[in-house]
Amino acid sequence: MTDNITAFELHRARGPFNAAFFSMMGPYIEWNVRRHKQRVFADLPRTVVELGSGVGANLRYLRPGSTLIAIEPNLPMHRRLRAAAERRGVHLDLRDRLAEDTGLPAGSADGVISSLVLCTVTDPAQVLTEVRRILRPGGTFRFVEHVVAPAGSPTRALQRALRRPWAWTFEGCSCERDLAGLLRAAGFARVEIEPYRLHSPFITFNTQIAGVAHA
């Protein structure tokens, strides 16, 4: 692991809270982003690496009999993730590691996915470097993420005002990251990004991107 990345610190209150929150709110979040996930997660390979699998919201996009290599350091998520994988008929290879250092061999993955994860990692640029390292030539990184709103907009002002309580509640989640810029600068052969906006009560969360980066 790179020297500037520390181990995941499990908070005894936040960890269980987030596991319960995303189990309860998962259907609502999925309803909002389903169309975008259906597009970018279509035709996933039989073995997929997922960064931050959480409680298994994206298992529905894997075919039964597929294998999910789940990079998930938040231990309170694990029980629900295992149960969801069993219900979906997906073989689960669960790894308690950070996305910055998956421990996977270079050039070993045909597909990597993430949703609402790059906002929470300590070093998103390092995560994208790791994704490029583990992808085979021609492999894809498919993502659905929430991002910083345009400068000067009311949403941007609200993101800035709420950044500290939002980050504390949601395991360090930042609503002020220019992930589209980081993806374009990460050295992928080609990056396709679609920006869009949700209309939900979680206003700081409503500016999003979905797309595919090609190794």
Rank of each mutant, 00 (worst) to 15 (best):
S108C: 11
R136M: 14
P73L: 07
I134P: 00
N74W: 07
P73D: 09
A151I: 11
G89R: 11
W166I: 02
T207F: 06
V49T: 06
D93Y: 10
L162M: 15
G54A: 04
L62A: 06
V148I: 15
I113V: 15
Y196G: 02
G152T: 04
R97Q: 14
P16H: 08
L158W: 11
Y61M: 02
F143Y: 15
Q208S: 13
I29H: 05
Q208C: 15
S174Q: 15
C119H: 08
S66P: 01
L62K: 05
A84R: 06
G181P: 02
N206D: 14
A189P: 03
G152A: 02
V117N: 00
L51T: 09
R79A: 12
M24P: 03
L198P: 01
A125V: 13
E171R: 06
G54I: 01
G152P: 00
E194Q: 12
H199T: 09
W168A: 12
N58M: 04
L92W: 06
R142T: 09
N18D: 12
W166L: 02
T169E: 03
L62I: 13
G107L: 12
A180M: 08
P154I: 13
V33Y: 02
R190C: 07
T169N: 06
S53F: 09
D123V: 05
F21I: 05
V112F: 03
R190Q: 14
